[in-house]
Structures are given as C-alpha cells and as structure tokens.
Design a protein around this nucleic acid. Sequence first.
DNA 1: TAAATTGGCGCC
DNA 2: AAAGGGCGCCAATTTA
Length: 569
Amino acid sequence: MTERWALAATESGGARLAPLGRTGLPTAPVLTEPDLVEAVRSRPDVTRWVWRSTTEIYPRLLAAGVTVARCYDIEVAESLLLGHEGRLGEPRSAAAAHARLHNGPVPPDPLPRSAERGSQSSLFEPRSGADLPFDALLQVYAEQLARHDATDRPGRMRLLTAAESAGMLVAAEMNRSGLPWRADVHRDVLQELLGERYAGGGEPRRLAELADEVSAAFGRRVRPDLPADVVKAFAQAGIKVRSTRRWELEELDHPAVEPLVRYKKLYRIWTAHGWSWLQDWVRDGRFRPEYQPGGTVSGRWTTNGGGALQIPKVIRRAVVADEGWRLVVADADQMEPRVLAAISRDPGLMEVAGHDGDLYTALSDRAFHGDRDHAKLALLGAVYGQTSGDGLKNLAALRRRFPQAVAYVDEAAKAGEEGRLVRTWLGRTSPPAAGSGDDGEAGIPQDDEPADGSGAHSADGGFTPGYASSDARARGRFTRNFVVQGSAADWALLLLAALRQSLGAAGLRAELVFFQHDEVIVHCPLQEADAVVEAIRAAGELAGRTAFGETPVRFPFTTAVVERYSDAK
DNA sequence: TAAATTGGCGCC
DNA sequence: AAAGGGCGCCAATTTA
C-alpha cells in the first residue's frame, strides 16, 4: 500500500497537500491546513512525501519530533534529470523547471550559500520558488516522472532520485543529531601536539619552536608556511626544489627537512582543526557540519563548513560516545574495486570481489604472484588514470587478467577525451566538457551495457584522435574515475537509505551520526551495538543488490564497536 | 578593496 | 613506489 502525497509549506506555517496517483496528478482536491507539522504528523500512512526541497521542509518537521519514511525531492530530481539530459548548470529550482515547462523566462538559481567562513550564521537559504503555486509544483512533478521514463534507464534513474532524496533526509537528520564531540579532549590533543597558545595570538609554542629549528637549519629566518620562502631558502642552500610538497622534501638531504615536515603537519591541524575550529563548530557536545548530499558532481557528499570529511586521524580522539553508549564505526572494504567489478561485470574481478576477505590479496593471488601492494597499485592506477611509473607495468598485468574491467574504465576515459558524457551505474551524469558550449549533441551518453574486452578498442565508428590535448587527457582521467567513484556513491546512498530504514523499523535508539564516502558511524546504547552491526551488514548487501541487481559481488564492512572514534582501526 | 587563484595537505 | 581521481580549508598572492 503506497500512499504518495504532495506537500508544500505556506507562508504562514501551514500546508497545501494532496494525494497523488500514478501519473503524479492529484487524486483528490487539494487541501489547505493551518499547521505544516500537524499535517504530516497526522498522516503516518503516507509512505512518500513529494516536496520541493527537503532542506526547506524537513528541518521544521524534525524540530517538532516528526520524521518521515521517504520523500521525493523535486529540486534534487530536477538536478539529476538536467544532468542526464546533458544540461547540468541550468537552473534547477522548481520555479525554473516550471518556467521551462511553459517556455517562460527561467529565473536563475539563488546564489549558493557561500557560508561566511567558520560561522553558522547563514541559516536561511534563499527560498527559490517557495512562492511557486501548488498546482505548478504538481505539474513539475508529473513532468519529472515522464522525464525519468524517457531516459535510457528509467528504473535506475527513479532509484537514483529516490536514493538522493533519502540522502537528503539522512543529511537533515545527521545535521540535527550531530557527532558526539568532547571539546575538552580536543583541547587536550591540541595542547599535546601544539603546546600552549601565546597571549597575543600567533603560533602556538610548538610551531614557533619548529619554525626556529627550520630557520636555524637554513642559517636565516625562514617562514615554513610560505612555500615561496622555503623554495628560495633551499635554492640558497644549493638545492633546487620544484615545490615544497612533503614527498618531494623527503627526498632531500638537509637538516631543515625534518622540522619543516613536522611543522607542516602541525600547522595544518592548527589552522584547520584547532581552537578556533572548536569554537566555531562544536556546541553542547556535538559537532554539526552541514552535510550536502550530491555536493560533488560524482555524487559524493560535501559539507558546507567544518571540514567534516577531512577530520585528521589524531583529532578523532575527541569523538567520544555518550556515557553508556557506543560508536559503531563501519568502513566498507575496498569499495571502489568491488564497485568496478559490479558495473563492468568482469568475470574474473567479480570472482575476486565475490568474497568477504581482503580483495587486494585475492587479486594478487590471481594476477600478481601474491604481491598485494602491486595489485592494489595497479587497480587504483586503472581507476585514477595513472600515466607513468611502475603502476603502468602493473596495469598491463591487470588488463590481461581482467580485460572487461579495464575496458570499462578505458571506455569512460575515451568518452571524456572525446568530450562525451559518462554516467554512473544509476545514471548520475558527468558535467559537459568545459567549452563544449550548449551543443548537447556532443554528449552522447555512455553505453548502458559495459563494453567487453574485444569491443573496447573497436567500438563506435567515430573518430579516433591521434593525440589528445592535455586538457582532454585530464578530462579522460576525470571521466575514468567518475564512473567508479560515482557508482560507489550510488551504492553508498542506497546503503544510507537502507540503514536508516532498518534502524527506524527496529525501534532502536541508535542514530546515524556520521558519513564519509564509504564509512558510517552509528551512535547507540551499548546493548544495541550488536543489532546495529548486523543492520549495517544487511544494509550493505541490500544496497549492492538494489543498485546492481543480482551480482556475486559482496560488500563487506570492517566494523568496530568503540567508545572513541580513534579506537576504530 | 574584494574576489579569484594558488600551493599545500587533510580525508576518501 | 610514484605523484593519477574527488573534495574543503587556510593563508598568501594575484587579478579585477
């Protein structure tokens, strides 16, 4: 029994709403009710709410203690559909969609909130199209359903929209719950690593000392945080260095290198996750980043501040479960190679990915004489588009044993070099090449079926450029990676959706509190931990089947039940 | 003077 | 072992 209702907020905190039929049109007269929250609370049988923007509506419901099972986010759908149509970058608001529907003037999207740095003050997003009449919203929705059907993969596109919408719900819920964060522990870590702060501001003690060591090693004052100054100092010491990247410095034989590298590491912590970060981002024992599902073109999430997806390992000591509670930290094992196996359907790689054990070890047993490091390097090289080094030799071995998998990413790279679009498994689409202008014809979508080894180099009677410009090659590396990273993000969305559902259905107090590409953290009472571990495992397998259909590929996790994040692996 | 870019490094 | 993909953040520098 699926009950689908459309819902819009009115200016006065009320709601307009109507039940929807299969084509997306209302099956009963539109209702107007005085209280948005009550309108939802009083309809627990609704299985999916269709609304303009989760960001607009859901935080208000959550604040009143109301959760929903599922939603359909019209602006999320518009963005995904525009992408699939090769029109990424066109305004994606519901108002814009409605204007396009009637060939009217299309309003630009409100500026992305470029949140004032380090502050959470910009709470209100411009409400693009909030004033869109309810029947206009319904028209946009009905048209979107038809546009899903008009794609090359209607089922998967509908799934993608549902998954991204679920991601919006998860994000809103996590924004609300926050990650348990002990400011006192964080301060202890900072003190330990950086030493005291000096009264007048400026560097803490340890950084100042290291800067002095660097200067002493050069025999003159050098500011280690200024790459230009460091390069010059090395030049004066008779050492030519192209940059001050760590891996390059570590090649050098000079007494300044050691303190310099240590300085950089600590400097990074100080500026990105130091005292002022703590001040800005942690309140009442919780760190609340603003998650943005689909913030990257490949579908990975970003956060709008707080650098939640780049928390340095040493700082993770500050993530501590509440008294009597635990953190269940679950990391998907070798997700990208497993996803490559699932989307390319390479028989050999599916076999390798068909077990829960370490994938790179299995890979190296098959093709790399047991050398796990080489196996891993080769695979990552294939996915990232490595262009030089030993990785290429290893790539050749990979290509011999897993031709269909390598052909899949090679084809994606070729598409990128030729200015064509590529898609993830569910249908999220790469942005048009810069400079490809509006000629959507350049964007012939990538095949629905993976190329097989034999066809990989002979397919598509199109032109074969003798040389690709370096821009084209860079674009090829991007699209090569896009199909894998993006399909992994597809899977991760389904994982979140499944986990959210099962935690809710089980009536646990457990809460999803963190998500980072292939890793989730659930905060739960100690006695629920076992159930949560099992829920995560089941959600991973369900996500695999839902995304990729019947596949031998397994999606196991490394799971730890800990009091502190830093105690997980 | 403000916005955009650059270099570097954190995470995946 | 080599320096390939995606981001966000910070400070300095360059550009408008």
